[in-house]
């Protein structure tokens, strides 16, 4: 699971108000090179909750994202490179996503988060 995906997922339990962002429990992290595509990054940046991304990246051991999105970010090559790495190259292979409100753990196995609920949670 990449952090672009982490940034779009929330705790699915009904009635949970603050189900985003998931805290990440790290088992195994992989880094895989992906093609750098600044056009795509500019396209996606407005949808990214930056604080959540930065915290998630840090929990996977990548602390190079600046505290806030810099001015002129879309033309800032160093920033876009860091953003690219955080969003698309870090993978949580094994671990869990933990709901910030309920503490419910959703396991991530083989890079696939399992967001299915038990019957009594729906």
């Amino acid at each position: 699971m990449k952090l672009i995906t982490h940034n779009m997922l929330s705790c699915p339990i009904k009635g949970v108000k603050n189900g985003f962002p998931f805290r990440i429990e790290v088992g195994e992290v992989a880094t895989r090179e992906a093609d750098f595509d600044p056009t795509f990054l500019r396209h996606i940046l407005p949808r990214i909750e930056y604080g959540a991304l930065r915290a998630a990246a840090a929990s996977l051991g990548f602390a190079d994202l600046p505290e806030t999105v810099p001015e002129g970010a879309t033309e800032d090559d160093a920033f876009l490179q860091a953003l690219h790495h955080a969003l698309l190259e870090l993978h949580l292979e094994e671990g869990a996503l933990v709901c910030p409100e309920t503490g419910r753990r959703f396991l991530v196995n083989k890079g696939i988060p399992n967001l299915l609920l038990h019957e009594d949670e729906c």
Binding site: T5, L9, P12, L88, G111, I112, P113, N114, L115, L116
Partner: peptide
């Protein structure tokens, strides 16, 4: 590696 992510969900 293809930009594909899989998520198990209803």
């Amino acid at each position: 590696a293809a930009q594909i992510e899989f998520v198990r969900s209803d």
